[in-house]
Design a protein around this nucleic acid. Structure first.
Length: 651
RNA sequence: GCCGACGUAGCUCAGUGGUAGAGCAAGUGUUUCGUAAACACUAGGUCGAGGGUUCGAAUCCCCCCGUCGGCUCCA
């Protein structure tokens, strides 16, 4: 059942209009929970356009976006927040009856939410951008003033700004601050640039609907996203990165490389793996199983459906029901498609009496689960309705917990390293100390588990961020966020202790003294789901899979028809070495075949003509464009086979 | 689910009320070629589904389905 702890989207460290204390912010209130910026959940899972770039390349100031470094150099957050105000002013000039929500700076840009009389069109965006340019050009000063909250309330009420009034009503402060530039005055904590001219380069990116205060029961506002930088060059660099990210989009590459498809006739969020995607998945799964067995896991298979009573016992019928497919009735019994594998693994554990001597028991499964997701949230392979988790459940004694966690982290690190994820951030989700009654399990259990998690991380010398209050009700967890080749964050391995299920299924083991005791249960998914993981890999590699994963590892390109026979012989010999080889024997010129192989990102191209056929060699060209010239076939076969065997990232 | 945009040939896209188009891919023929696109011809579409307006709908309207950008949620 591991579900990724969602990275909170709370705006720690963000400049925002929302909370508006009457005093200017102090740098001391900087974020404590994150060494990386808070990401919206969606950006963690799917680095979509607009969220790309991450902080790796755009360092943020600590805290609230105060001026730092050289004086008079406004930082990015201040620039962006100011740009949001300028955008609001432009919108006001176009829509005099506009009502304003909030307009914070965010990672990579800013947005502002508006309540408008009609939907925005692309032409509106262009017009708003034009008006913004005039405001920036005019060099209007930002003026701050303070007002008693009642006075400010009246000020906004008079202007029909109901959302601002609501914000003020939620503020505890007796005095609030307002910022004015040109014809636009906003409730805002600041800070802002001194003058609109300091905003530099900006661009509006897209519009979106957004519920007022993120609450689906409240009005839907129109949000405009934009970004701003101190200079035109930085803006262009950012836009270039967006283009690069779009080129890596796994949905685009999935089609171009013929890896998978999602068919309307089958239904949304249901993935068809094509032969080439299937090879990648099979290779990863084989590796996964082998590595798990090597580390003491036992692989199991469990059903895709189960009686509804099972889910009542597990509790999912209660708290997870809205994500489950409706029951199907068979012979008067109700069955559910499984959204989780854990109940089945527990039943395997429970199928006979267990001794303390056989713990830990590690049951692993590539288990396919189905979860109902609202239609608007589906996204390629990254958010689907049917997926295969690399799931495992560890049942152990309390005294074994920390060791098991260390072993699990080891395995996670090994996997990540194998796939070339070199950077990651670790979050430790703990109970909310102010609210301990809402959690399942005993006080001692929690304390033990939390200290085992901390102990494991410290034994591994892994830096982590403590996140109090982020734990699920059933147990504390470690979540690992991966950084891909573009520095974007992805949901990675998750390791969760569970106090609820062992209890609900009443599982136990016989201890040394003959008493029955409750084992500790750990859920863990290291790749997450095969769908999401491979979707992420496609983007991480930009479609250029390392040789061990490449669907076609070698393509042999005969120069003319008379070389086809030799090409087939070469291919056959390479297949004897377990390499995946194809021969492009079409009556096309070599350049054409090379181009095609290149676009398919095949690691190795072997060009064979008269010279090679006579000498028993192949002319090796790498996907990188490097032409290594003729070499004996056996040499190439050795090289390729050894790089594949070692799962090397090299060509 | 909600807001907005979109859905035309296998793919990428043009076509805004008057007989459905291009490039690439595919098929056939010609070319037998040395490291990123040879040439010619041919075939290919109930313009996402259904309903409506109209003499006439890819085009306008309604309603479904799906995709995309977000909101929300998560593997």
């Amino acid at each position: 059942m591991p579900q990724a702890a969602s990275p909170s989207a709370t705006g720690a460290g963000k400049t925002t209009c929302e909370p508006v204390p009457g005093t200017p912010p102090s740098t001391a209130e900087g974020t404590t929970r994150a060494r990386w910026p808070p990401l919206s959940a969606s950006s963690a899972l799917r680095p979509a356009a607009g969220k790309v770039g991450g902080t790796a390349s755009f360092p943020r100031p600590n805290g609230r976006g105060f001026v730092f470094g050289r004086k008079n150099m406004p930082d990015l957050e201040t620039i962006r927040h100011s740009a949001a105000h300028v955008m609001a002013e432009a919108v006001l000039s176009l829509f005099p009856d506009a009502k304003f929500g909030i307009g914070p700076s965010i990672e990579d840009g800013f947005y502002y939410d508006f309540d408008l009389s009609r939907p925005l069109t692309p032409e509106d965006l262009a017009e708003i951008e034009k008006r913004m340019a005039r405001i920036v050009e005019a060099g209007l000063p930002f003026q701050r003033r303070e007002m008693a909250r009642e006075e400010a309330r009246a000020f906004f009420a008079e202007r029909g700004q109901a959302y601002k009034v609501e914000l003020i009503d939620d503020l505890p402060d007796p005095v609030v601050s307002l910022y004015t530039q040109g014809n636009f005055t906003d409730l805002c904590r600041g800070p802002h640039v001194a003058n609109t001219r300091e905003i530099g380069a900006f661009k509006l990116l897209h519009t979106a609907g957004a519920y007022w205060r993120g609450d689906e029961h409240r009005p839907m506002l129109q949000r405009i996203y934009g970004t701003a930088f101190a200079s035109k060059d930085e803006l262009n660099a950012y836009l270039y990165r967006l283009e690069q990210a779009a080129l890596r989009d796994h949905r685009r590459l999935g089609k171009e490389l013929d890896l998978f498809s999602i068919e309307e006739e089958t239904g949304p969020g249901l993935v068809h793996w094509h032969p080439k995607g299937g090879v990648i998945r099979e290779t990863i799964e084989d590796f996964w199983r082998k590595e798990h067995r090597r580390r003491g896991y036992e692989v199991v298979y469990t059903p895709h459906i189960g009686r509804v009573e099972l889910w009542k016992t597990s509790g999912h019928w209660g708290w997870y029901r809205e994500n489950m497919y409706s029951p199907m009735e068979v012979e008067g019994q109700q069955y559910m498609l499984k959204p989780m594998n854990c109940p089945f693994h527990i039943l395997i554990y429970k199928s006979r009496l267990r001794s303390y001597r056989e713990l830990p028991i590690r049951l692993a499964e590539l288990g396919t689960v189905y979860r109902y997701e609202r239609s608007g949230v589906l996204h390629g392979l990254l958010r689907v309705r049917g997926f295969t988790q690399d799931d495992a459940h560890i049942f152990c004694r309390p005294d074994q917990l920390e060791d098991e966690l260390v072993r699990t982290i080891d395995l996670a690190q090994f996997l990540m390293q194998t796939f070339g994820y070199e950077h990651y951030d670790v979050e430790l989700s703990l109970r909310d100390p102010a609210n301990i009654e809402k959690y399942a399990g005993s006080e001692e259990g929690w304390q033990h588990a939390e200290s085992a998690l901390v102990g494991a991380l410290e034994r591994k010398s892994i830096p982590y961020a403590r996140q109090e209050g982020e734990a699920k009700f059933y147990g504390p967890a470690i979540d690992i966020k991966l950084r891909d080749a573009l520095g974007r964050a992805w949901q990675g391995p998750t390791i969760q202790v569970d106090f609820a299920l062992a209890e609900r299924f009443d599982i136990d083991y016989v201890a040394e003294d003959g008493t029955h005791r409750r084992p500790v249960m750990v859920h863990r998914a290291l790749l997450g789901s095969m769908e999401r993981f491979i979707g992420g890999l496609v983007e991480h590699y930009a479609g250029a899979f390392p040789p061990w994963l490449a669907p076609v590892q070698v393509v042999v390109l005969p120069i003319a028809d008379r070389h086809t026979e030799y090409a087939d012989k070469v291919a056959e010999q390479l297949r004897q070495r377990d390499l995946r080889v194809s021969v492009d024997a079409r009556r096309e010129n070599v350049n054409y075949k090379i181009r095609e192989a290149q676009l398919q990102k095949v690691p190795y191209m072997l060009i064979v003509g008269d010279r090679e056929a006579a000498a028993g060699t192949v002319s090796l060209r790498l996907r990188s464009g490097e032409n290594l010239g003729s070499k004996p076939l056996a040499d190439f076969a050795d090289r390729a086979a050894s790089l594949v065997a070692s799962r090397s990232m090299e060509l």
